[in-house]
Amino acid sequence: MTERFVKIYPRFERFWHWTQMALIFVLMFTGLAVTGLNGLIPFGPAVMLHIIAALALIVLWVFAIFWHITTGTWVHYVPTTKGLFKVARFYAWGIFKGEKHPYRKAYWRKHNPLQALTYLALKLVLFPAIWVTGVIYLTYNFWDSSVPNATLWLTIVANLHLLAGFAIAAFVLAHVYLLTVGGSFRAHVRPMVTGFDKVDLTPEEESYLEQDEPVRIR
C-alpha cells in the first residue's frame, strides 16, 4: 500500500459542490428573511432572490443527477454497513483517545460508510423534501382553486418546507464542523478545490493509474 494523490473529484463534481454551496447559502439567508428571522434583507428582494436561487439549484440538480447516472458515480453512495459502526465509534469515542480514523479512502470509494449514508439520506430525503415542498409552495396559485382547504394545505406545505430548510442548515453545521475533525480544515477542503486527495493504493492500482490514467495521479 502506498499513499498517493489521486484525482477523485472531477471538474463537474467540484463545480456542482461549490455552486450548490453558494446557492444553499443564498437560500438560507433569504429563506430566514422570508420567514421573518433575518432583517438584513427586505422581504420583497428576499423572496425574489430565494425564487431565483431555488430555480437555479433545481437546474443544477437536474445536471447533477444526469452526471451521477451517466458516469456511474452513483455507486459511491450505495450504502453499506461494513465499517459503519467503526466510523461511528471513532467519532463518538475514538477521536478523543487519538485513534486513527478507521476508514481508508479508496479511489473507487471516496466516502466512508457513515459519510455515504449521510449524503445518500441528504440526496434522497432532505433535498427532495425541500424542492418538492418548495415547488408546491411556489405554484400555489395553479392548484389552490382545485384543492379544497387550499390555505390549510399551503400552511402545511410551507411549514414542511421550513422544517426541511432547518434540517439542511443542521447538516451544513455538522458538515463544516467535521472538516475540522481529524486533520486540518485546509487539508479537508483542499481536495474539493484541486480534485486530488490522498488515497491508499495497492501496487496494482498504482501502476494501472500511472500507465492508463496518468493525469489522475500525482
Partner: peptide
Amino acid sequence: TGKNGDAS
C-alpha cells in the same frame, strides 16, 4: 482531551 484523531 487534546486529541483530534488521526484521519489524514
